[in-house]
Design a protein around this nucleic acid. Structure first.
Lengths: 231, 231
DNA sequence: GATTGTCTTATGGTATACCATCATACGTAA
DNA sequence: TTACGTATGATGGTATACCATAAGACAATC
Protein backbone atom coordinates (compact mmCIF):
# COMPACT_ATOMS: atom_id res chain seq x y z
CA UNK A 1 0.00 0.00 0.00
CA UNK A 2 2.74 2.41 0.99
CA UNK A 3 4.73 1.51 -2.09
CA UNK A 4 1.83 2.19 -4.43
CA UNK A 5 1.06 5.45 -2.65
CA UNK A 6 4.62 6.61 -3.19
CA UNK A 7 4.50 5.64 -6.84
CA UNK A 8 1.22 7.54 -7.28
CA UNK A 9 2.82 10.62 -5.76
CA UNK A 10 5.77 10.23 -8.11
CA UNK A 11 3.38 10.03 -11.05
CA UNK A 12 1.50 13.10 -9.88
CA UNK A 13 4.74 15.06 -9.72
CA UNK A 14 5.57 14.03 -13.28
CA UNK A 15 2.35 15.41 -14.76
CA UNK A 16 2.60 18.34 -17.18
CA UNK A 17 0.84 21.40 -15.81
CA UNK A 18 -1.62 23.07 -18.11
CA UNK A 19 -1.71 26.75 -17.42
CA UNK A 20 -3.40 28.00 -20.55
CA UNK A 21 -5.18 31.21 -19.62
CA UNK A 22 -8.54 31.76 -21.24
CA UNK A 23 -9.76 35.11 -22.47
CA UNK A 24 -12.56 34.68 -19.98
CA UNK A 25 -10.28 34.42 -16.94
CA UNK A 26 -8.18 37.39 -18.07
CA UNK A 27 -11.32 39.44 -18.64
CA UNK A 28 -12.78 38.46 -15.27
CA UNK A 29 -9.63 39.64 -13.53
CA UNK A 30 -9.61 42.94 -15.40
CA UNK A 31 -13.28 43.60 -14.71
CA UNK A 32 -12.96 42.77 -11.04
CA UNK A 33 -9.90 45.02 -10.69
CA UNK A 34 -11.67 47.82 -12.57
CA UNK A 35 -14.67 47.63 -10.24
CA UNK A 36 -12.56 47.47 -7.09
CA UNK A 37 -10.44 50.36 -8.36
CA UNK A 38 -13.51 52.52 -9.03
CA UNK A 39 -13.06 52.69 -12.75
CA UNK A 40 -16.67 51.49 -12.68
CA UNK A 41 -18.65 53.34 -10.01
CA UNK A 42 -21.27 51.78 -7.73
CA UNK A 43 -24.58 51.94 -9.57
CA UNK A 44 -22.96 52.41 -12.96
CA UNK A 45 -24.59 50.41 -15.77
CA UNK A 46 -22.42 47.81 -17.46
CA UNK A 47 -23.71 47.76 -21.04
CA UNK A 48 -22.59 44.58 -22.76
CA UNK A 49 -21.74 46.08 -26.14
CA UNK A 50 -19.82 48.91 -24.51
CA UNK A 51 -17.81 46.44 -22.46
CA UNK A 52 -17.08 44.46 -25.64
CA UNK A 53 -15.55 47.54 -27.21
CA UNK A 54 -13.51 48.51 -24.16
CA UNK A 55 -12.24 45.02 -23.46
CA UNK A 56 -11.87 43.89 -27.08
CA UNK A 57 -13.74 40.62 -26.60
CA UNK A 58 -17.05 39.16 -27.78
CA UNK A 59 -20.38 39.30 -25.97
CA UNK A 60 -20.06 35.63 -25.02
CA UNK A 61 -16.99 36.36 -22.93
CA UNK A 62 -18.53 39.51 -21.45
CA UNK A 63 -21.75 37.72 -20.51
CA UNK A 64 -19.93 34.84 -18.85
CA UNK A 65 -17.80 37.27 -16.87
CA UNK A 66 -20.89 39.21 -15.81
CA UNK A 67 -22.47 35.99 -14.55
CA UNK A 68 -19.38 35.32 -12.43
CA UNK A 69 -19.30 38.84 -10.99
CA UNK A 70 -23.03 38.58 -10.34
CA UNK A 71 -22.52 35.43 -8.29
CA UNK A 72 -19.73 37.22 -6.39
CA UNK A 73 -22.10 40.05 -5.53
CA UNK A 74 -20.07 42.73 -7.33
CA UNK A 75 -22.68 43.17 -10.05
CA UNK A 76 -26.44 43.08 -9.89
CA UNK A 77 -28.72 42.44 -12.82
CA UNK A 78 -32.25 43.77 -13.03
CA UNK A 79 -34.25 41.78 -15.61
CA UNK A 80 -34.60 43.70 -18.87
CA UNK A 81 -32.68 46.60 -17.41
CA UNK A 82 -29.28 45.04 -17.49
CA UNK A 83 -26.30 44.74 -15.19
CA UNK A 84 -24.83 47.45 -12.96
CA UNK A 85 -22.13 47.65 -10.31
CA UNK A 86 -23.63 46.80 -6.95
CA UNK A 87 -24.26 49.71 -4.62
CA UNK A 88 -23.63 49.33 -0.87
CA UNK A 89 -26.79 48.64 1.07
CA UNK A 90 -26.65 50.05 4.61
CA UNK A 91 -28.27 47.06 6.32
CA UNK A 92 -26.06 44.62 4.47
CA UNK A 93 -22.96 46.71 5.14
CA UNK A 94 -23.55 46.52 8.88
CA UNK A 95 -23.91 42.75 8.70
CA UNK A 96 -20.79 42.46 6.55
CA UNK A 97 -18.73 44.36 9.13
CA UNK A 98 -20.07 42.07 11.85
CA UNK A 99 -19.10 38.94 9.91
CA UNK A 100 -15.68 40.43 9.30
CA UNK A 101 -15.32 41.03 13.02
CA UNK A 102 -16.10 37.40 13.78
CA UNK A 103 -13.79 35.96 11.12
CA UNK A 104 -10.92 38.41 11.36
CA UNK A 105 -10.62 38.24 15.13
CA UNK A 106 -10.63 34.46 15.00
CA UNK A 107 -7.92 34.59 12.33
CA UNK A 108 -5.89 36.99 14.46
CA UNK A 109 -6.15 34.62 17.39
CA UNK A 110 -5.05 31.64 15.31
CA UNK A 111 -2.25 33.68 13.78
CA UNK A 112 -0.86 34.55 17.21
CA UNK A 113 -0.88 30.84 18.11
CA UNK A 114 0.32 29.19 14.92
CA UNK A 115 1.89 31.53 12.42
CA UNK A 116 5.60 31.25 11.54
CA UNK A 117 7.84 34.11 12.74
CA UNK A 118 8.57 35.11 9.15
CA UNK A 119 4.90 35.54 8.38
CA UNK A 120 4.39 37.80 11.40
CA UNK A 121 7.46 39.83 10.46
CA UNK A 122 6.09 40.22 6.95
CA UNK A 123 2.88 41.65 8.38
CA UNK A 124 4.92 44.36 10.07
CA UNK A 125 6.43 45.26 6.72
CA UNK A 126 3.02 45.59 5.14
CA UNK A 127 1.91 47.96 7.91
CA UNK A 128 4.93 50.14 7.08
CA UNK A 129 3.81 50.18 3.44
CA UNK A 130 0.28 51.14 4.46
CA UNK A 131 1.73 54.00 6.51
CA UNK A 132 3.78 55.15 3.51
CA UNK A 133 0.73 54.99 1.25
CA UNK A 134 -1.25 57.14 3.70
CA UNK A 135 1.62 59.65 3.73
CA UNK A 136 1.80 59.91 -0.04
CA UNK A 137 -1.96 60.48 -0.14
CA UNK A 138 -2.79 57.32 -2.09
CA UNK A 139 -6.12 55.96 -0.81
CA UNK A 140 -6.24 53.27 -3.51
CA UNK A 141 -2.79 52.11 -2.49
CA UNK A 142 -3.88 52.10 1.17
CA UNK A 143 -6.87 49.94 0.29
CA UNK A 144 -4.75 47.60 -1.81
CA UNK A 145 -2.10 47.18 0.89
CA UNK A 146 -4.70 46.70 3.60
CA UNK A 147 -6.18 43.88 1.55
CA UNK A 148 -2.69 42.43 1.25
CA UNK A 149 -2.23 42.62 5.04
CA UNK A 150 -5.41 40.69 5.72
CA UNK A 151 -4.70 38.13 3.07
CA UNK A 152 -1.35 37.42 4.68
CA UNK A 153 -2.94 37.31 8.12
CA UNK A 154 -5.58 34.77 7.08
CA UNK A 155 -3.15 32.63 5.14
CA UNK A 156 -0.64 32.65 8.00
CA UNK A 157 -3.47 31.58 10.28
CA UNK A 158 -4.31 28.74 7.89
CA UNK A 159 -7.78 30.09 7.15
CA UNK A 160 -7.96 30.33 3.41
CA UNK A 161 -11.71 29.65 3.20
CA UNK A 162 -12.47 32.42 5.68
CA UNK A 163 -10.25 34.72 3.62
CA UNK A 164 -12.30 33.87 0.51
CA UNK A 165 -15.45 34.82 2.41
CA UNK A 166 -14.01 38.07 3.78
CA UNK A 167 -12.50 39.08 0.44
CA UNK A 168 -15.83 38.53 -1.28
CA UNK A 169 -17.74 40.50 1.37
CA UNK A 170 -15.16 43.28 1.34
CA UNK A 171 -15.54 43.60 -2.41
CA UNK A 172 -19.19 44.45 -1.83
CA UNK A 173 -18.32 47.28 0.54
CA UNK A 174 -15.25 48.43 -1.31
CA UNK A 175 -16.58 51.93 -1.77
CA UNK A 176 -17.40 52.27 1.91
CA UNK A 177 -13.97 51.04 2.87
CA UNK A 178 -12.43 53.62 0.56
CA UNK A 179 -14.51 56.30 2.25
CA UNK A 180 -13.52 55.26 5.77
CA UNK A 181 -9.87 55.39 4.70
CA UNK A 182 -10.34 58.88 3.25
CA UNK A 183 -11.72 60.22 6.54
CA UNK A 184 -9.77 63.06 8.01
CA UNK A 185 -7.52 61.83 10.79
CA UNK A 186 -7.98 58.19 9.91
CA UNK A 187 -4.32 57.69 9.02
CA UNK A 188 -2.91 57.94 12.52
CA UNK A 189 -5.65 55.90 14.17
CA UNK A 190 -5.63 53.14 11.57
CA UNK A 191 -1.88 52.63 11.78
CA UNK A 192 -2.02 52.63 15.58
CA UNK A 193 -4.73 49.98 15.58
CA UNK A 194 -2.82 47.78 13.18
CA UNK A 195 0.40 48.12 15.16
CA UNK A 196 -1.50 47.18 18.31
CA UNK A 197 -2.64 43.99 16.61
CA UNK A 198 0.85 43.31 15.29
CA UNK A 199 2.40 43.79 18.73
CA UNK A 200 0.02 41.20 20.14
CA UNK A 201 0.97 38.81 17.33
CA UNK A 202 4.69 39.36 18.02
CA UNK A 203 4.30 38.45 21.64
CA UNK A 204 2.04 35.52 20.74
CA UNK A 205 -0.80 36.99 22.73
CA UNK A 206 -3.83 35.21 21.24
CA UNK A 207 -6.40 36.99 23.40
CA UNK A 208 -4.74 40.36 22.78
CA UNK A 209 -4.66 39.78 19.02
CA UNK A 210 -8.29 38.72 19.09
CA UNK A 211 -9.32 41.83 21.00
CA UNK A 212 -7.23 44.23 18.91
CA UNK A 213 -8.73 42.84 15.73
CA UNK A 214 -12.27 42.86 17.09
CA UNK A 215 -11.88 46.48 18.24
CA UNK A 216 -10.42 47.55 14.90
CA UNK A 217 -13.33 46.15 12.92
CA UNK A 218 -15.79 47.65 15.40
CA UNK A 219 -14.15 51.04 14.83
CA UNK A 220 -14.32 50.90 11.05
CA UNK A 221 -17.86 49.53 11.24
CA UNK A 222 -18.80 52.59 13.26
CA UNK A 223 -17.14 54.93 10.76
CA UNK A 224 -18.91 53.22 7.89
CA UNK A 225 -22.22 53.48 9.71
CA UNK A 226 -21.71 57.20 10.21
CA UNK A 227 -20.89 57.65 6.52
CA UNK A 228 -24.00 55.73 5.47
CA UNK A 229 -26.22 57.79 7.71
CA UNK A 230 -24.98 60.91 5.92
CA UNK A 231 -25.81 59.61 2.44
CA UNK B 1 -38.88 67.54 2.49
CA UNK B 2 -41.24 65.17 4.23
CA UNK B 3 -43.95 65.88 1.67
CA UNK B 4 -41.71 65.05 -1.27
CA UNK B 5 -40.48 61.92 0.47
CA UNK B 6 -44.06 60.75 0.89
CA UNK B 7 -44.86 61.50 -2.74
CA UNK B 8 -41.75 59.58 -3.87
CA UNK B 9 -42.85 56.61 -1.81
CA UNK B 10 -46.32 56.80 -3.37
CA UNK B 11 -44.76 56.79 -6.83
CA UNK B 12 -42.52 53.84 -5.93
CA UNK B 13 -45.57 51.88 -4.82
CA UNK B 14 -47.30 52.59 -8.14
CA UNK B 15 -44.47 51.14 -10.25
CA UNK B 16 -45.21 48.04 -12.32
CA UNK B 17 -43.09 45.09 -11.19
CA UNK B 18 -41.27 43.16 -13.88
CA UNK B 19 -40.94 39.57 -12.87
CA UNK B 20 -40.09 37.97 -16.18
CA UNK B 21 -38.10 34.82 -15.47
CA UNK B 22 -35.28 34.11 -17.83
CA UNK B 23 -34.38 30.64 -19.06
CA UNK B 24 -31.05 31.23 -17.42
CA UNK B 25 -32.45 31.77 -13.92
CA UNK B 26 -34.73 28.75 -14.21
CA UNK B 27 -31.83 26.63 -15.41
CA UNK B 28 -29.56 27.88 -12.62
CA UNK B 29 -32.13 26.86 -10.03
CA UNK B 30 -32.58 23.42 -11.55
CA UNK B 31 -28.86 22.79 -11.78
CA UNK B 32 -28.23 23.93 -8.23
CA UNK B 33 -31.05 21.74 -6.93
CA UNK B 34 -29.80 18.78 -8.95
CA UNK B 35 -26.29 19.14 -7.50
CA UNK B 36 -27.52 19.58 -3.94
CA UNK B 37 -29.86 16.61 -4.37
CA UNK B 38 -27.03 14.40 -5.63
CA UNK B 39 -28.43 13.91 -9.09
CA UNK B 40 -24.95 15.08 -10.07
CA UNK B 41 -22.34 13.45 -7.85
CA UNK B 42 -19.24 15.16 -6.46
CA UNK B 43 -16.50 14.81 -9.06
CA UNK B 44 -18.94 14.07 -11.88
CA UNK B 45 -18.12 15.80 -15.14
CA UNK B 46 -20.68 18.28 -16.43
CA UNK B 47 -20.35 18.02 -20.20
CA UNK B 48 -21.91 21.05 -21.85
CA UNK B 49 -23.60 19.29 -24.75
CA UNK B 50 -24.99 16.61 -22.46
CA UNK B 51 -26.44 19.28 -20.18
CA UNK B 52 -27.99 20.98 -23.22
CA UNK B 53 -29.82 17.79 -24.08
CA UNK B 54 -30.98 17.11 -20.53
CA UNK B 55 -32.08 20.65 -19.83
CA UNK B 56 -33.39 21.49 -23.29
CA UNK B 57 -31.51 24.75 -23.59
CA UNK B 58 -28.64 26.09 -25.70
CA UNK B 59 -24.95 26.05 -24.81
CA UNK B 60 -25.08 29.81 -24.12
CA UNK B 61 -27.50 29.29 -21.25
CA UNK B 62 -25.57 26.26 -19.97
CA UNK B 63 -22.23 28.08 -20.03
CA UNK B 64 -23.61 31.11 -18.20
CA UNK B 65 -25.13 28.88 -15.55
CA UNK B 66 -21.86 27.01 -15.16
CA UNK B 67 -20.06 30.30 -14.63
CA UNK B 68 -22.48 31.19 -11.85
CA UNK B 69 -22.15 27.80 -10.14
CA UNK B 70 -18.38 28.08 -10.50
CA UNK B 71 -18.38 31.39 -8.66
CA UNK B 72 -20.56 29.79 -5.96
CA UNK B 73 -18.01 27.02 -5.52
CA UNK B 74 -20.41 24.21 -6.49
CA UNK B 75 -18.58 23.52 -9.76
CA UNK B 76 -14.90 23.59 -10.57
CA UNK B 77 -13.47 23.94 -14.03
CA UNK B 78 -10.10 22.56 -15.01
CA UNK B 79 -8.84 24.31 -18.15
CA UNK B 80 -9.37 22.15 -21.24
CA UNK B 81 -10.77 19.37 -19.12
CA UNK B 82 -14.10 20.97 -18.45
CA UNK B 83 -16.38 21.47 -15.49
CA UNK B 84 -17.20 18.99 -12.74
CA UNK B 85 -19.13 19.04 -9.49
CA UNK B 86 -16.81 20.16 -6.72
CA UNK B 87 -15.55 17.42 -4.43
CA UNK B 88 -15.20 18.10 -0.69
CA UNK B 89 -11.64 18.94 0.27
CA UNK B 90 -10.83 17.82 3.85
CA UNK B 91 -8.86 20.92 4.80
CA UNK B 92 -11.52 23.23 3.40
CA UNK B 93 -14.31 21.22 5.04
CA UNK B 94 -12.75 21.72 8.46
CA UNK B 95 -12.50 25.45 7.88
CA UNK B 96 -16.07 25.59 6.61
CA UNK B 97 -17.36 23.95 9.80
CA UNK B 98 -15.38 26.42 11.87
CA UNK B 99 -16.86 29.39 10.00
CA UNK B 100 -20.32 27.89 10.45
CA UNK B 101 -19.67 27.60 14.16
CA UNK B 102 -18.76 31.27 14.40
CA UNK B 103 -21.68 32.52 12.32
CA UNK B 104 -24.38 30.12 13.50
CA UNK B 105 -23.68 30.60 17.20
CA UNK B 106 -23.75 34.37 16.76
CA UNK B 107 -27.05 34.03 14.91
CA UNK B 108 -28.42 31.84 17.70
CA UNK B 109 -27.42 34.44 20.26
CA UNK B 110 -29.07 37.25 18.31
CA UNK B 111 -32.16 35.11 17.73
CA UNK B 112 -32.56 34.55 21.47
CA UNK B 113 -32.34 38.31 22.03
CA UNK B 114 -34.36 39.69 19.14
CA UNK B 115 -36.54 37.17 17.34
CA UNK B 116 -40.35 37.41 17.46
CA UNK B 117 -42.15 34.68 19.43
CA UNK B 118 -43.80 33.40 16.27
CA UNK B 119 -40.45 32.87 14.60
CA UNK B 120 -39.13 30.87 17.55
CA UNK B 121 -42.31 28.79 17.63
CA UNK B 122 -41.90 28.10 13.92
CA UNK B 123 -38.41 26.77 14.56
CA UNK B 124 -39.90 24.23 16.94
CA UNK B 125 -42.23 23.05 14.21
CA UNK B 126 -39.37 22.56 11.79
CA UNK B 127 -37.52 20.42 14.36
CA UNK B 128 -40.62 18.22 14.53
CA UNK B 129 -40.50 17.86 10.76
CA UNK B 130 -36.82 16.96 10.87
CA UNK B 131 -37.65 14.30 13.48
CA UNK B 132 -40.39 12.92 11.22
CA UNK B 133 -38.03 12.86 8.22
CA UNK B 134 -35.46 10.90 10.25
CA UNK B 135 -38.18 8.44 11.23
CA UNK B 136 -39.34 7.87 7.66
CA UNK B 137 -35.74 7.27 6.64
CA UNK B 138 -35.50 10.23 4.27
CA UNK B 139 -31.97 11.66 4.52
CA UNK B 140 -32.62 14.10 1.69
CA UNK B 141 -35.70 15.39 3.46
CA UNK B 142 -33.68 15.68 6.70
CA UNK B 143 -31.06 17.75 4.87
CA UNK B 144 -33.71 19.93 3.23
CA UNK B 145 -35.55 20.59 6.48
CA UNK B 146 -32.33 21.26 8.36
CA UNK B 147 -31.48 23.90 5.77
CA UNK B 148 -34.94 25.35 6.28
CA UNK B 149 -34.37 25.48 10.06
CA UNK B 150 -31.16 27.42 9.72
CA UNK B 151 -32.57 29.77 7.14
CA UNK B 152 -35.39 30.65 9.53
CA UNK B 153 -32.93 31.03 12.40
CA UNK B 154 -30.69 33.45 10.51
CA UNK B 155 -33.58 35.45 9.09
CA UNK B 156 -35.26 35.68 12.51
CA UNK B 157 -31.93 36.91 13.87
CA UNK B 158 -31.78 39.55 11.15
CA UNK B 159 -28.60 38.09 9.63
CA UNK B 160 -29.42 37.58 5.98
CA UNK B 161 -25.87 38.18 4.76
CA UNK B 162 -24.45 35.61 7.17
CA UNK B 163 -27.12 33.17 5.95
CA UNK B 164 -25.97 33.75 2.35
CA UNK B 165 -22.42 32.93 3.43
CA UNK B 166 -23.41 29.81 5.40
CA UNK B 167 -25.72 28.55 2.65
CA UNK B 168 -22.98 28.92 0.09
CA UNK B 169 -20.42 27.15 2.29
CA UNK B 170 -22.89 24.41 3.16
CA UNK B 171 -23.49 23.78 -0.52
CA UNK B 172 -19.81 22.95 -0.85
CA UNK B 173 -19.99 20.33 1.91
CA UNK B 174 -23.42 19.06 1.00
CA UNK B 175 -22.19 15.53 0.49
CA UNK B 176 -20.44 15.48 3.86
CA UNK B 177 -23.53 16.81 5.58
CA UNK B 178 -25.56 14.05 3.97
CA UNK B 179 -23.09 11.50 5.26
CA UNK B 180 -23.13 12.82 8.82
CA UNK B 181 -26.94 12.64 8.77
CA UNK B 182 -26.81 9.05 7.54
CA UNK B 183 -24.61 7.98 10.46
CA UNK B 184 -26.06 5.28 12.62
CA UNK B 185 -27.54 6.76 15.80
CA UNK B 186 -27.36 10.29 14.50
CA UNK B 187 -31.15 10.76 14.57
CA UNK B 188 -31.53 10.81 18.33
CA UNK B 189 -28.48 12.96 19.00
CA UNK B 190 -29.22 15.49 16.28
CA UNK B 191 -32.79 16.07 17.43
CA UNK B 192 -31.65 16.37 21.05
CA UNK B 193 -29.06 18.98 20.13
CA UNK B 194 -31.58 21.01 18.15
CA UNK B 195 -34.15 20.85 20.92
CA UNK B 196 -31.50 22.04 23.37
CA UNK B 197 -30.89 25.07 21.18
CA UNK B 198 -34.61 25.67 20.77
CA UNK B 199 -35.20 25.47 24.52
CA UNK B 200 -32.56 28.15 25.03
CA UNK B 201 -34.25 30.31 22.40
CA UNK B 202 -37.64 29.85 24.08
CA UNK B 203 -36.32 31.05 27.40
CA UNK B 204 -34.42 33.90 25.71
CA UNK B 205 -31.13 32.55 27.02
CA UNK B 206 -28.62 34.18 24.64
CA UNK B 207 -25.55 32.57 26.18
CA UNK B 208 -27.27 29.19 26.29
CA UNK B 209 -28.35 29.44 22.65
CA UNK B 210 -24.85 30.47 21.68
CA UNK B 211 -23.32 27.52 23.50
CA UNK B 212 -25.85 24.97 22.23
CA UNK B 213 -25.26 26.08 18.66
CA UNK B 214 -21.50 26.12 19.04
CA UNK B 215 -21.54 22.62 20.54
CA UNK B 216 -23.80 21.31 17.80
CA UNK B 217 -21.54 22.51 15.01
CA UNK B 218 -18.49 21.18 16.87
CA UNK B 219 -20.19 17.79 17.03
CA UNK B 220 -21.02 17.61 13.35
CA UNK B 221 -17.57 18.97 12.48
CA UNK B 222 -16.09 16.07 14.43
CA UNK B 223 -18.33 13.56 12.64
CA UNK B 224 -17.40 15.01 9.29
CA UNK B 225 -13.72 14.88 10.21
CA UNK B 226 -14.04 11.20 11.12
CA UNK B 227 -15.78 10.45 7.82
CA UNK B 228 -13.10 12.27 5.85
CA UNK B 229 -10.33 10.39 7.61
CA UNK B 230 -11.92 7.11 6.47
CA UNK B 231 -12.07 8.10 2.81
C1' DG C 1 -45.90 74.38 -24.88
C1' DA C 2 -47.70 69.91 -23.84
C1' DT C 3 -49.33 65.53 -25.13
C1' DT C 4 -49.75 61.59 -27.94
C1' DG C 5 -48.62 58.44 -31.57
C1' DT C 6 -45.27 56.24 -34.30
C1' DC C 7 -40.88 54.89 -35.70
C1' DT C 8 -36.18 53.86 -34.78
C1' DT C 9 -32.53 52.47 -31.97
C1' DA C 10 -30.52 50.18 -28.08
C1' DT C 11 -29.93 46.20 -25.47
C1' DG C 12 -30.48 41.75 -23.14
C1' DG C 13 -31.77 36.82 -24.16
C1' DT C 14 -30.88 32.89 -26.71
C1' DA C 15 -29.29 29.99 -30.44
C1' DT C 16 -25.88 28.36 -33.50
C1' DA C 17 -21.53 28.18 -36.10
C1' DC C 18 -16.73 27.62 -36.23
C1' DC C 19 -12.21 26.61 -34.47
C1' DA C 20 -8.51 24.57 -31.82
C1' DT C 21 -7.01 21.12 -28.90
C1' DC C 22 -6.99 16.80 -26.81
C1' DA C 23 -8.40 12.06 -26.34
C1' DT C 24 -9.53 7.87 -28.44
C1' DA C 25 -9.76 4.47 -31.97
C1' DC C 26 -7.96 2.07 -35.78
C1' DG C 27 -4.64 0.42 -39.03
C1' DT C 28 -0.09 -0.90 -40.16
C1' DA C 29 4.50 -2.38 -39.44
C1' DA C 30 7.92 -4.68 -36.86
C1' DT D 1 1.24 -9.04 -30.02
C1' DT D 2 2.90 -4.54 -29.32
C1' DA D 3 3.99 0.00 -30.55
C1' DC D 4 3.56 3.93 -33.31
C1' DG D 5 1.39 7.01 -36.52
C1' DT D 6 -2.67 8.97 -38.24
C1' DA D 7 -7.41 10.05 -38.47
C1' DT D 8 -11.61 11.01 -36.25
C1' DG D 9 -14.61 12.41 -32.71
C1' DA D 10 -15.49 14.97 -28.49
C1' DT D 11 -15.46 19.12 -26.15
C1' DG D 12 -14.42 23.74 -24.41
C1' DG D 13 -13.51 28.54 -26.14
C1' DT D 14 -15.07 32.27 -28.71
C1' DA D 15 -17.59 34.87 -32.16
C1' DT D 16 -21.69 36.25 -34.38
C1' DA D 17 -26.55 36.24 -35.83
C1' DC D 18 -31.25 36.88 -34.78
C1' DC D 19 -35.18 38.14 -32.03
C1' DA D 20 -38.10 40.49 -28.75
C1' DT D 21 -38.85 44.19 -25.86
C1' DA D 22 -38.28 48.62 -24.03
C1' DA D 23 -36.63 53.22 -24.29
C1' DG D 24 -35.91 57.31 -26.74
C1' DA D 25 -36.49 60.56 -30.50
C1' DC D 26 -39.29 63.05 -33.51
C1' DA D 27 -43.35 64.85 -35.62
C1' DA D 28 -48.09 66.17 -35.50
C1' DT D 29 -52.03 67.93 -33.21
C1' DC D 30 -54.46 70.46 -29.77
Amino acid sequence: MVATTESNTANEEMKVERSVTTLRSLTLEKMRDAILDFRFKPGERLVERTLCERLGVSRSVVREVLRHLEAEGLVETIPHQGPAVTKPDPAQAAQIYEIRGLLESEAARACALNAPEAAIAELGGVIDEIDAAFQTGSPREVLRRTTEFYEKLFVAAGKEVAWDVVRSLNARINHLRSMTIAQEGRHRAAIAEMRLLHAALLRRDAAGAYEASRAHVATVAGLAGAILSRI
